[in-house]
Simulated assay, not measured.
Amino acid sequence: MIGEFLHTEQFKVVNSFEELIKAEFREEINAFCWERNLAGDFKEVVSKLKLKEDVTDVSIEDLLNLCLSVNGSIAREQIINDLTLLTDLGALPVLNLIKAYPRDQEFDFISTDVYSFHVDRSPVSTDTFLCTYHGAAGDIIPNNQVEQKILIPEIRQKLKDLHDGAETEFEDFLKENYFDMHYQLKTGSTPVSLGIGNLWRLAVDRPGQQVLPCVHRAPLENDGEYRLLLIC
């Protein structure tokens, strides 16, 4: 159970969707988990969906068109219910069938893809919601167990060498290329798995945010297995 691993003061478990959306980020708390043990056969749902791209958007219509067993139908109903709850909240949830995300291979000293520990950023007031229904689950990590990559001396120097502009524009360069959003684990750090079926709400780097944004990453996919992920 996720609750057994929330050994920090930063991640908190709630018991309902209402608690999840009403809980306040404060002090060090920057992630809430509605811990769930979902009924239904989500593997069957995944097996019936068609992968069109490495990351394929799945609509409610796509789900409704699937011919499923009783357990598969229970899983489908749960997914649609989650999508509806978040949509009614004013969010824009997306259901993704994932073979693999694009990898950032441009530089050998820093990565800016979602497999790297990172924070989300938004110009408007919003939070990140995540739920893995099937496949490998991502991780989050307490902020005091990571270091911003741009502050690591050898990485920062290489970024300065890469930057073609005035010194006064360097910080803007880091932000424009998303380098400042990525983090490296400190020695002895302990990531926390998001788990399967749990609905998470993570703090985002945005205007008016009162807490540090939550650091998280996508997992490496299991061989031969697609992920089914709700995200918004």
Rank of each mutant, 00 (worst) to 15 (best):
L6Y: 00
H7Y: 01
E9M: 01
E9A: 02
Q10N: 05
Q10D: 04
V14C: 07
N15S: 11
S16P: 07
F17A: 08
F17L: 02
E18S: 10
E18D: 12
E18A: 10
E19P: 02
I21L: 07
K22F: 06
A23L: 02
E24Q: 06
E27P: 00
E28M: 01
E28N: 02
E28P: 01
E28F: 00
E28G: 03
I29N: 00
I29D: 01
I29H: 00
I29S: 00
N30K: 01
A31L: 02
F32A: 07
F32H: 04
W34T: 00
W34H: 01
E35L: 08
R36M: 04
L38R: 04
L38I: 03
A39V: 08
A39M: 05
A39E: 05
K43W: 08
K43G: 14
V45N: 03
S47F: 08
K48A: 14
K48S: 10
L49S: 14
K50Q: 10
L51G: 09
L51I: 10
K52P: 06
E53N: 13
E53T: 12
E53R: 11
D54K: 14
V55P: 08
T56C: 11
D57E: 15
D57H: 12
V58W: 01
V58T: 11
S59E: 13
E61C: 07
D62A: 04
D62E: 08
L63Y: 05
L64M: 15
N65A: 14
L66S: 12
C67V: 14
L68N: 15
N71Y: 06
N71L: 12
G72R: 13
S73T: 15
S73K: 14
R76W: 04
E77P: 09
I79G: 04
I79L: 11
I80P: 10
I80Q: 12
I80C: 09
N81I: 13
D82L: 08
L83S: 05
L83Y: 07
T84K: 14
L85I: 08
L86H: 11
D88V: 15
L89F: 12
G90Y: 05
A91V: 13
A91H: 15
A91Y: 15
P93Y: 09
P93N: 11
L95C: 09
L95V: 08
L95G: 04
L97K: 13
I98E: 07
A100C: 13
Y101E: 11
R103A: 14
D104N: 12
Q105I: 11
E106L: 12
F107Q: 11
F107D: 03
F107W: 09
F107P: 03
D108V: 11
D108E: 07
D108N: 13
D108P: 07
I110N: 02
I110T: 12
I110Q: 10
S111R: 13
S111W: 02
V114N: 05
V114L: 05
F117L: 13
F117N: 04
H118F: 09
V119S: 07
D120A: 06
D120T: 03
S122Q: 12
P123C: 03
V124Y: 08
V124K: 07
D127K: 03
T128R: 06
F129A: 04
L130Y: 02
C131E: 03
T132I: 07
